[in-house]
Write a protein that binds this DNA or RNA. Structure first.
Lengths: 169, 169
DNA sequence: GCATTATAGTATGGCGCCATACAAAATACC
DNA sequence: GGTATTTTGTATGGCGCCATACTATAATGC
């Protein structure tokens, strides 16, 4: 059903010859990756139409809900990304006149980042649009299908090293 | 069960207030993304232990199964990546002495890339290891769970723009 | 046969991410 | 009060990816 990228198809063919026991799991794995890649890509395409990347959208959204503004290091924490990455994303948002950095007058190391009116307007518009669309991918699912899929995804997630680590740190 | 990254949690909270109908779908979406991210990350970690990235591993693997060597543009096609990207990946593989470029003597535009003995040995080792491990993520699943998950993933995939496009181009 | 077009590989610059290292400023410690 | 440590933001350089533009070479058309 899902057309795998050639690299995955090739890896599967190879595995089929050498490790047939693993093939069923590999197929599932690639299907999950294909779904995530499709979601990411759709996401990026939609944001690109507004001149935004995913990283910048996350900042826009985080800033929109924090009324007093946020510092770069708070943004890094909430976006799950390093402070260094934030610097670059903020540069982009400032270039696009969606946000501005203000220097903090009590602690002179700190900055406060706030959206411009333009940024606020865009955030309002996009957050709703985006949530709507993300939710729509699973709109054709029944309640029990959703519960089932969630259970299976979680079960697989906990099998990964990353998932197991996150489970009990 | 799955601990969402903060950015996703924040987006969910916001949506919960404004677009409650979309929340169930969003949750599922983020769960799928979390699983894929965990798989990717595990993958990257394992390859990094051998000084490889995912992109380089794909080339290693493609070269290992094509005995006569491949040209950069064939590699690009099979890896699902542009020729420009291949140039960089090959530079890395050559630096690590895993592959070499040979000039084609009939068509002087062309190159032929081949693995070194070191590259061949590493490929042999890693392909098996990797397939094994990827398959293991779903090893705790019964046959019917696998079929069910596959069906649900495919159903969601076809709802995405990317998936729908790939379905019938 | 020579001009046009297509193909192959690369260079360049952008994005988002990371790790590392740094300067400035604030805080902690004695 | 003055040194040591921590915190903050940024710079730098690497990775993998893309799009675009360029050079060399081949193939095609007339």
């Amino acid at each position: 059903m899902i057309n795998f990228e050639q690299k995955y198809a090739a890896l599967l063919a190879q595995a089929d010859a050498k490790t047939p026991a693993a093939v069923a799991g590999m197929r599932l794995c690639f299907e999950a990756l294909a779904l995530a890649a499709a979601i990411d890509r759709d996401c990026a395409d939609r944001l690109a139409a507004h001149g935004l990347s995913e990283g910048r959208f996350v900042l826009l959204f985080l800033l929109a809900e924090a009324k007093g503004g946020l510092s770069p290091h708070e943004l890094a924490e909430r976006a799950g990304v390093t402070r260094g990455t934030i610097t670059g994303l903020l540069d982009g948002l400032e270039r696009a006149a969606l946000a501005r950095r203000f220097s903090h007058d009590v602690d002179r190391r700190k900055l406060t980042v706030q959206l411009t009116p333009k940024g606020r307007a865009l955030a309002r518009k996009l957050v709703a649009e985006h949530s709507q669309w993300i939710g729509a991918v699973f709109s054709g699912f029944t309640q029990s299908e959703r519960a089932l899929l969630s259970r299976l995804l979680t079960k697989a997630y906990l099998q990964t090293d990353t998932g197991a680590r996150a489970g009990k740190p």
